[in-house]
Nucleic acid binder design. Structure first.
Lengths: 201, 201, 201, 201
DNA sequence: CATGAATGAGAGTTCATTCAT
DNA sequence: GATGAATGAACTCTCATTCAT
């Protein structure tokens, strides 16, 4: 199919990317063979390699999507949340739902894959660093706003609280891999809210 | 009645396990070939397979060591720490030092490997669940003790705080993979201490 | 009755052939992909396959051009040269210059490619046989003329001398691939002249 | 089979090398797949790669054998031949017989492969240069000896005659690929003898 | 007529595992 | 008991060729 519209090309790319994301989320980057991706995409090997130069290129594109999705999620949470605690809890809820049935469905499951890869692949590490620094910046802004509104102690370093907030999201997800996410969220959310919101004390 | 002593057998096993841990920490489970492990161990392929039935078996043994080391670390931290905040910070410091020159040197680097594997390997997930539930139990005890001593609010659910404590350790490590661990620890530790220690408010 | 003129078709063919010759000379038949040829020709894959049924067909056409060029070169050398020795030396000089900046530029570099291919491809071998028999015939004529003029011993078999002459051209080119052609030519030419021209003895 | 004798290892290497030489001679380097070599060797893919790191490595080893065989052949011819003409003719005869049933059987057929490869592979070109310079040196010695014995004109440059001698061997082989070697040799040999031996004039 | 996206068999290579010695 | 040569299925990736547009 020559001289095809740009939309068509972008759709094909998305088709491959979605298939790959599903495979990678289910099996991990390294346990997924290109044949798996090819099969899941419904295209041929040659076509997949027309859109992505190598498996690493495909992994890079998936990671980019993952990071964009992550930063986008948190940016939206940022808009609608008033407090650091709610930001953390909303983020978890968004990502948890993403674990089930949103368009971001497979991406939350990619988290451990991403961290493994970041240790070995400098390009991915750098992209991750950029994304996560942006995230920490957003969180720090939320902290400063809360401090300005008097809902958070002013002796806390915003960057430190931002790191803590991020850790609270990350940690919950890691734990949910081992323990299952449903049961714990209520207690966890309540604890986070009490610790990060002095008004409740 | 084997010709060689049990000690000899155990030593061989340790020799392989140490070599494998170093390889896995440096390159990840999947990027490490059995030939890498065989080479690093100084033994032959046949010997390695005499002690471990398969690569997965070897990974399982490494994960067991990793989890034992982790639980042991925190258990020790438990003994010497009086407060939840100090437990978190001590744990980070122990593991951070482990990143450099303790006998646990490679194990901290195995963290993302472990979480990736736990998503795909049910046996490993279960062992992890057991270990982390034990860890959470220890942390909950620390929380209860602190509440009894009046250094922590009593309206906090101990299991929730335990999860938060664990998340604060895990999150710091994930972030340090991307951002480098040195700079942030002081601010992070200070923030954790202020949030988890009402006396400072 | 085609919509485009025959000239246009022939031009397209030449365009592809020139691009292919350059690629084949630079990289060899097998290391050159059809994508390379397509790219160098400035046309599309479909167009190239409109003019040449297959890669082998294209190789065949290139070989034909190569052989035509070769025979044509020697035919011209035949006209202007009076002696067997000068024929050999002029041929080398023409082809050597062809290595640099004549329209035959890439063809001399195709020589080893041709001989490799002739061993495996019977069609090409046959075309080569025809061309080289023609060449040997031209050379034999030159020998007979020289013998008639008394500038060459009459006890030499013309066909044998023709083969020797051809070998002297071919051999020089093979050696120049390994050794570089510049330095040796003067000594080589002088030696050829002395051996093939009894007058100089 | 572990702890196998060095002889056994060398035999395996030879086994692969012989199979590869046969394949390469029959089909050329690039038209021969590693699967072809594997099949012809009677071993497995893994075994072939235990002895040769890559296809290029294998080609390099074959070329080395080819060049050694070539230089060795000519060195022997050198010993037993008294005149430059006989050296050329003996060399052709040795290599021609090699085309049929000596241990060097496939190597003579590798000639065009070698020259093609030398144009694209600098390592191979260099090895070839070394070997052929050695050959030219041997030939020049023969020339000087003949000049000393008064069987060759002293006004010929030994290095130039050496190049001519080599060309006469190479050219005959190239021509024999197209024309078949049997018929021509007698006439060719006679012509070479007459041209290179002034005594016959 | 021209295009170039799509194909899929097959390329070179790796590697977990076995077993004769 | 230990060895390491041997295995072969599976891997990532290429490329000559086709055909819907």
């Amino acid at each position: 199919m020559p001289k095809v519209s740009d939309t068509h090309l972008a759709d094909r790319r998305d088709q491959i990317l979605s298939a790959a994301a599903a495979c990678f989320a289910a099996q991990g980057f390294h346990a997924t063979s290109m044949a798996d991706v090819v099969g899941a995409s419904g295209l041929s090997a040659g076509s997949v390699y027309r859109y992505f130069a190598s498996k690493d290129d495909l992994i890079g594109a998936i990671v980019d999507r993952y990071l964009e999705g992550l930063v986008g999620h948190f940016a939206r949470a940022h808009m609608t949340s008033s407090s650091p605690a709610d930001t953390v809890i909303d983020a978890i809820r968004l990502l948890t739902q993403g674990l089930i049935d949103t368009p971001f469905q497979p991406f939350a499951q990619l988290m451990p894959q991403f961290w493994s890869e970041a240790r070995r692949n400098e390009t991915i590490r750098q992209r991750g660093e950029t994304a996560f620094r942006a995230l920490l910046g957003q969180f720090a802004d939320i902290v400063r706003r809360a401090q300005g509104e008097g809902t958070l102690q002013t002796d806390l370093e915003p960057s430190g609280v931002a790191q803590v907030m991020l850790a609270l999201v990350q940690g919950f997800f890691l734990q949910s891999i081992l323990l299952g996410q449903d049961a714990a969220l209520e207690v966890y959310a309540d604890t986070v809210r009490r610790l990060l919101s002095p008004s409740s004390r």
